[in-house]
Amino acid sequence: MPVTSGSTWDLLVEALGPVALGAVAGTIPLALVSFAVGLVIALGVALMRLSRRGWLSGLARAYVSVVRGTPLLVQLFVIFYGLPSVGILVDPWPSAVIAFSINVGGYAAEVIRAAILSVPKGQWEAAYMIGMSRRLALRRVILPQAARVSVPPLSNTFISLVKDTSLASLILVTELFRRAQEVAAFSQEFMAVYLEAAVVYWIICLGLSAVQSRLEKRLDRHVAH
């Protein structure tokens, strides 16, 4: 990027290109992939946590405890800077996806567990009564109802994740914030460029909130208001 001699406004317009590119090629795919993988982990952990086998639920409890009890930045550094010292080299992108997925897995597991527990016992009984196995009852009866309850808290988790992906800039992933840092360092216009980055994050989250409320309306169509 050339050194700009024009106004701050010109700089912002010029910076918008790389910052938006960082969002589209970095932040957004990183958040989407990590969230998807994280949800799969979370469902597994939630089901383990609800298992009648003590060791399974203990394992799940330990996982959630470690994830929630340690900083995300430390988790990222352990994977990217720590693992190479035991001979495991992971590239920036996969490191970020692994760390964020594990993190989402821990938080969302508690959300999903609570949502499953919120489905009335009578629903399990009706499912068993018509001959369903536990697995089929979960898939056809319980999880669809739990999904409705978990949309608002999972949306919060996702929005937090989008913002947390900025930490990936510290392990060399070229996402939105790293692009902004590059522009800022080059132009020395820290205030303007970082505020611009903040606005782009905000716009992404506004979009997500809109998606959330549409999803909630859709899932609420068969309950009384």
Partner: peptide, 19 residues
């Protein structure tokens, strides 16, 4: 399961599937 297959229950609180 085979015992359950031979009978069907109607619940006090209906327990219909709301979705």
């Amino acid at each position: 399961a085979s015992l359950r297959d031979r009978s069907a229950m109607v619940f006090q609180h209906y327990n219909l599937f709301p979705h």
